[in-house]
């Protein structure tokens, strides 16, 4: 009886350690989420014994998880911040960035909205609460419903840095987003809000623009993969996956963080609506 119990215990332990190796934990941004999820499906279909889990809890959370050692790959839609790097170094974690794709932040409105074009300054004024009615922008007399991503998202930070921060007389001025702005937790929710609200404006990642909303021309440039890749579109940023050190060659983490460099990876990135970093 005793040896039997021991054997069972050993088998259980072996099973646990095996499964512990065969899992890949991803955490972080909702913007990188679709890429991560598609990569995860693709990777699991190639390696059926690996369990890839993807949490979409925000860029900051992803960074935190990496620092805590609770995830293998952190998806960030912004670069790591100074204090996150400091905390990582103190915890003995060395974050290495992998740029998996480029993304433009598109300004979207309801298709019934006649406004077609805005400048970055106009967008800033809308979000700062200086322009409150569409009639000021050549549209109908409707109060603008301002929709922003929640402050915990990388998209918010990018938008804040690229749009709300500007230079006046050579000095950096950071405008505050008006307190009346609605905050939503994800790109999908932002688009949905615009879809159902004729007077709304929101910013979403390029991959989330579809027929149900109209994306605006910013500074005369349409948000397309081409204009983002060429750098002509003003509100664009790279998307990252961070790992602790460069992943060991041949490991699952390495294989996963190099998917975007393969032709299949490029195809996936393109199909979900982002801009790949490779050109096959």
């Amino acid at each position: 009886m005793k040896w039997f119990t021991m054997a069972v215990c050993a088998a259980l332990m072996a099973a646990t350690t095996v499964t512990a190796e065969e899992k890949l934990v991803l955490d972080g941004s909702t913007t990188v989420g679709p890429i991560a999820k598609a990569f995860a499906e693709y990777y699991m279909s190639m390696n059926p014994d690996v369990n890839v889990t993807v949490s979409e809890s925000g860029s900051g959370n992803g960074a935190k998880s990496l620092i805590h050692g609770t995830c293998d790959i952190a998806n960030l839609s912004r670069f790591m911040k100074d204090n996150e790097f400091t905390a990582a170094a103190e915890a003995g974690v060395m974050p290495v960035a992998h740029v998996v794709a480029m993304d433009g932040i598109a300004m979207v409105v309801h298709p019934s909205n006649p406004v077609k074009e805005l400048t970055v300054a106009q967008v800033r004024d809308i979000y700062a609460g200086k322009i409150t009615n569409w009639s000021d922008l050549g549209g109908p007399d409707r109060d603008i419903v301002v929709v922003s991503r929640d402050t915990n998202s990388g998209t918010y930070e990018t938008f804040y840095n690229l749009v709300m921060t500007h230079k006046v007389d050579g000095e950096k001025v950071k405008e505050k987003i008006q307190s009346g702005a609605e905050y939503v937790g994800s790109n999908g929710a932002a688009r949905q809000r615009v879809q159902s609200t004729p007077a709304a404006i929101a910013y979403v990642g390029l991959g989330f623009v579809d027929r149900t909303v109209k994306d605006l021309t910013i500074e005369g440039v349409d948000a397309t993969p081409e204009s983002v890749a060429s750098g002509r579109y003003a509100i664009a940023r790279p998307l990252f996956m961070f790992t602790n050190g460069y992943p060991k060659l041949g490991s699952h983490v390495h294989a996963f963080t190099t998917i975007h460099l393969s032709p299949k990876g490029q195809e996936i990135v393109e199909e979900i609506g982002f801009v790949p970093v490779t050109k096959y």
Binding site: S57, E84, G185
Partner: peptide, 24 residues
């Protein structure tokens, strides 16, 4: 008829960025 923000939603939504490692 205006949107509002509550304590519970702020905790749920903001926890993603808030990080006690950086002790902010």
């Amino acid at each position: 008829l205006e949107p509002v923000r509550t304590l519970t939603a702020t905790i749920a939504g903001d926890m993603g960025e808030a990080d006690h490692v950086t002790g902010s």
